[in-house]
């Protein structure tokens, strides 16, 4: 395997006495889409949030294209975060600016792109998620699915090397989930490296290159989706999957 785009090495995270992550090791190759599944409280979201240091790891290393994000200074961290796009469960669009301004803000302030260029790029990304016609709308006037697609466009506009998805469809009405998954599928097909925490098992099965099952702060099992879903080896994986399917 060539150098992975995202590599998590011996990652540990504690909140006080509570050990949430114990020795996580994970590699995501360039262009690979890795799904992380597991029961709530298993540490999946915490692991994902360590990848751009929204959570500060207790120990371990996280390499983005070979550079460690854990040890770096705060200014280097801001630069590295440009390479790691993140999509949240709750969208977190800025309610005081319209859609295109949402997508432009970090391009201008963090990436220092000229305004015209940022706008052009923002419109192109909105086009990609099918929302160019809503560019001048305020976020609160969009449906949840549309808001999440804008959030994806906002992350993509910074030309990240990796995209992190933290339960991107969990807050959506069922009929809106499909539009977000379609954007994610399109993103994968274009070669984006993606690490996804999600409960969308059907989508994982169809689109993921690899599925990682986490429980109790550990990676219990990983493999291609066919194997994890059809023939899970670990007992905990089997138990979890049977609960989810039931």
């Amino acid at each position: 395997m060539s150098r992975p785009m995202l590599e998590i090495v011996a990652l540990e995270k504690s909140f006080g006495d509570l050990k949430v992550l114990r020795d996580i090791n994970l590699r995501v190759a360039t262009g690979e889409m890795v799904f992380v599944i597991g029961p709530s409280g298993s540490g999946k979201s915490t692991m994902l949030r360590c990848c751009n240091r929204l959570e500060e790891p207790t120990s371990g290393a996280i390499l983005i294209d070979g550079k460690d994000i854990v040890g770096c200074s705060s200014s280097a961290l801001n630069r590295m975060r440009l390479e790691v796009g993140m999509v949240f469960q709750g969208f977190h669009l800025y309610p005081h600016m319209n859609v295109v301004a949402n997508v432009m803000l970090a391009q201008i302030k963090a990436l220092k792109r000229p305004k015209d260029e940022a706008r052009e790029r923002a419109l192109a990304m909105l086009d990609r998620v099918g929302l160019r016609h809503r560019a001048e709308t305020m976020p609160t006037q969009l449906s949840g699915g549309q808001q999440q697609r804008v959030a994806i466009a906002r992350a993509l506009a910074l030309d990240p090397k990796v995209m992190l998805f933290d339960e991107p469809t969990s807050a959506l009405d069922p009929e809106l989930v499909g539009s977000v998954l379609a954007v994610m599928k399109d993103l994968k097909d274009s070669g984006m490296t993606m690490l996804v925490v999600s409960h969308e098992m059907g989508f994982a099965r169809e689109a993921a290159d690899r599925v990682v099952f986490m429980d109790g702060g550990l990676v219990v099992e990983e493999g291609p989706p066919e194997q994890i879903f059809a023939n899970p080896k670990a007992e905990r994986t089997q138990a979890f999957l049977s609960r989810v399917r039931a």
């Binding site: 801001n78 440009l82 796009g85 977190h92 005081h96 970090a106 302030k109 963090a110």
Partner: peptide, 25 residues
């Protein structure tokens, strides 16, 4: 808190997030 996280996750510094995102709200 999510507003701060969205700002910081897109590479904005603390002051930029404060001025551009938190203060107007």
């Amino acid at each position: 808190k999510g507003q701060w996280e969205a700002g910081r996750a897109t590479g904005l510094g603390f002051t930029q997030t404060l001025v551009q995102i938190a203060l107007p709200q």
